[in-house]
Computed example of a mutant assay.
Amino acid sequence: MKYNKRKRLFLVLAIIWMIMIFGFSSRNGDLSGEDSGRVGRLVGEWFVPGFDEWSEVKQNAFVDKVDFPVRKTAHATEYAVLGTLIFGATYEIQRKKRYIVGIPWLCGTIYAATDEIHQLFVPGRSGQVRDVLIDSCGAFIGVMLVTWMISRREKKESTK
């Protein structure tokens, strides 16, 4: 009974996360650019010594320079979370490893592809095959991370 509750909880969380991804993807190009610009500015403030003393022009140039990595890191991260949540919704202890990894990764990849198609209809946005690949890698990393954590826990428990 406890096992089914866990799977249902992860399924609900995965659906909520997918809705959040859809919401971010629905923002037009200008709003999306503002979002990544704010994150780029935070990166500068947190990690670049003296960033606050730079001129506005130099700060904006930095924000423009880190825009691409910020956006792609966001893609990979949001899909790593999605892959982890789908893993939790589909994980069965007795299932073969390839299914444990493959099903959540495939679901995350399919969702990434549909999300990029959705962006074709959002003003100022575009659907990119590259983003599907980045999202797919993010989902895979999330799934592999949680698989690694479970195997570590199982090894630790078996040595007790």
Rank of each mutant, 00 (worst) to 15 (best):
residue 147 T to D: 01
residue 94 Q to R: 14
residue 77 T to R: 01
residue 126 S to A: 15
residue 59 Q to S: 12
residue 37 G to H: 08
residue 132 V to G: 07
residue 147 T to Y: 07
residue 104 P to W: 03
residue 69 P to Y: 14
residue 3 Y to G: 00
residue 93 I to D: 12
residue 101 V to F: 04
residue 125 R to V: 07
residue 70 V to N: 10
residue 118 H to T: 03
residue 146 V to D: 07
residue 6 R to W: 13
residue 121 F to E: 01
residue 85 L to Q: 08
residue 150 I to N: 08
residue 4 N to G: 00
residue 26 S to M: 08
residue 75 H to K: 10
residue 100 I to D: 00
residue 150 I to A: 03
residue 80 A to G: 05
residue 28 N to G: 15
residue 94 Q to A: 14
residue 124 G to K: 02
residue 59 Q to G: 01
residue 101 V to I: 15
residue 138 G to C: 12
residue 48 V to L: 14
residue 23 G to D: 05
residue 131 D to M: 02
residue 1 M to K: 06
residue 141 I to A: 15
residue 20 M to Y: 13
residue 42 L to P: 03
residue 97 K to A: 08
residue 55 S to D: 08
residue 13 L to V: 12
residue 104 P to H: 03
residue 116 E to P: 13
residue 27 R to W: 08
residue 30 D to L: 11
residue 20 M to D: 09
residue 7 K to Q: 14
residue 113 A to L: 02
residue 143 V to A: 13
residue 111 Y to F: 15
residue 19 I to F: 14
residue 55 S to H: 06
residue 128 Q to F: 09
residue 159 T to P: 02
residue 23 G to F: 11
residue 77 T to C: 00
residue 78 E to L: 07
residue 81 V to R: 07
residue 120 L to I: 00
residue 75 H to W: 12
residue 17 W to D: 11
residue 101 V to M: 01
residue 90 T to K: 11
residue 100 I to P: 03
residue 98 R to N: 04
residue 109 T to K: 00
residue 46 W to R: 06
residue 1 M to S: 10
residue 160 K to S: 02
residue 102 G to L: 04
residue 158 S to K: 12
residue 93 I to L: 12
residue 133 L to W: 08
residue 80 A to L: 11
residue 131 D to C: 03
residue 46 W to Q: 09
residue 34 E to T: 14
residue 144 M to W: 06
residue 44 G to C: 05
residue 65 K to A: 13
residue 119 Q to W: 03
residue 104 P to F: 01
residue 112 A to F: 01
residue 71 R to S: 06
residue 95 R to T: 11
residue 58 K to N: 13
residue 19 I to L: 15
residue 137 C to A: 14
residue 13 L to M: 13
residue 80 A to E: 13
residue 45 E to G: 01
residue 130 R to W: 02
residue 52 D to K: 15
residue 59 Q to F: 03
residue 141 I to T: 15
residue 84 T to V: 07
residue 154 E to I: 09
residue 28 N to H: 12
residue 105 W to C: 09
residue 113 A to F: 05
residue 99 Y to I: 06
residue 31 L to S: 12
residue 114 T to S: 07
residue 149 M to C: 10
residue 60 N to W: 04
residue 119 Q to L: 01
residue 79 Y to G: 02
residue 108 G to H: 03
residue 119 Q to F: 06
residue 135 D to L: 08
residue 86 I to R: 01
residue 16 I to E: 04
